[in-house]
Simulated assay, not measured.
Amino acid sequence: MSEKRFTPGRVTWRELMTLDSQRAKAFYGELFGWTFVPFDLGPDGGNYEGIKLGEKLIGGIWEIRKGESPTSIFMSYVSVKDVDAAAKRAQENGGQVAHGPKDIPNMGRFAVLMDSDNAVIIAYQDLNGDPEPAMPKAGEFCWETLSTNDVERAKAFYSKVFGWQARSFQGGMSVFGVDDTPEGAVADIEKAQNMPPQWFTYVVVDRIETARDKAAKLGAQVLVPLVEVPNIGRIAMIVDPTGAPLGLFDHGGKA
């Protein structure tokens, strides 16, 4: 048996909490070629399924029960050494624990955290260890971005909770990461957008225009048609037919 490997501070799992799992599965199956497999998370697990790309398990999808959430949303899981300690650090540094800490039978332990501005992220320890880091391929999750009204406060919070260091990046953004491995970015919200602070996750696509237009034909709303990030790639933002925001990323428009 291989030794379990843990990578504290890395984003290791993404989960779609959706108001309509059947509609979401039809949309993402067509857009990215995702398939879905049942997960048994015990009596409290609800209607949970794993997301697969080919034979690779890349995330989960959970149909929200009535009253649990007003909207569909992607959630990002960050690996931690001790979930309870991370939850305590969040509370000590101006955040809240929205749910947990709690065990997932035969899988791990998690806590849903809210940062100083109520953006939601999950602290997680997997009983089976973390997946081996690899360059994401088309159809796989690749990146997170935090939109916030207070960048400096966000930097301080996530430094304390996850041990992330922040460094300056182009365009007025900062990049979060552990050592030299970036895990996400943080950027100011323009108050005119009337957007609450929140985390966004991104999926790699072969070409932004093709994926964006296909998403629109399948019922998505296009929030941001195209943004060029010099020397990095290109992004677009959509909202899926169930209301969940998602970013698309390509490496510069090459097919």
Rank of each mutant, 00 (worst) to 15 (best):
T7I: 03
P182C: 12
G247S: 02
K160F: 08
G59N: 09
S2F: 10
P105R: 05
P8G: 00
S79N: 09
M173G: 07
A154F: 12
N106C: 02
H99M: 15
A154N: 05
A154L: 08
A255P: 04
Q170A: 14
L226V: 09
F169A: 08
V175R: 07
K4L: 10
A26D: 15
I232V: 15
D44H: 13
T148Q: 02
A216T: 04
A98D: 14
N194T: 06
I189V: 04
Y124I: 06
D117H: 14
P70S: 11
D117K: 13
K4C: 05
G46Y: 13
F176I: 06
P105I: 05
A134T: 06
R89K: 15
K191Q: 10
R10G: 01
G100V: 10
Y124M: 14
G100K: 12
E209W: 03
R207M: 03
A216G: 04
F32D: 04
N93D: 09
I232A: 12
D150T: 03
T145M: 14
Q198N: 12
V80A: 10
M1D: 12
G129K: 05
G108P: 07
A211D: 01
Y77P: 07
G243I: 00
T201V: 08
E3M: 14
R153C: 01
E152C: 04
S69A: 15
E63C: 02
V161D: 13
A24W: 05
N93Q: 11
P230H: 02
A192H: 12
G184R: 10
G172Q: 10
E132N: 09
M1R: 07
P101D: 12
A156D: 08
P8I: 00
T7L: 05
K214Q: 11
R89F: 09
S72D: 06
A211F: 04
M195G: 04
D44L: 14
K56M: 08
V204N: 07
R5K: 07
L248C: 01
F157S: 06
V11R: 02
M114N: 14
I104F: 14
Q221D: 12
V178G: 05
S159A: 15
L127F: 12
K88M: 07
I121P: 06
T12V: 15
A244S: 02
A255L: 08
E152N: 13
T71Y: 15
G54K: 14
A111E: 09
A185Y: 09
E140Y: 01
E15R: 04
E68V: 05
G94N: 10
G184W: 14
A24I: 03
F36S: 08
A86K: 05
M135Y: 03
G46I: 08
W34M: 03
V222H: 00
A211E: 02
K160W: 10
F157R: 07
G95V: 09
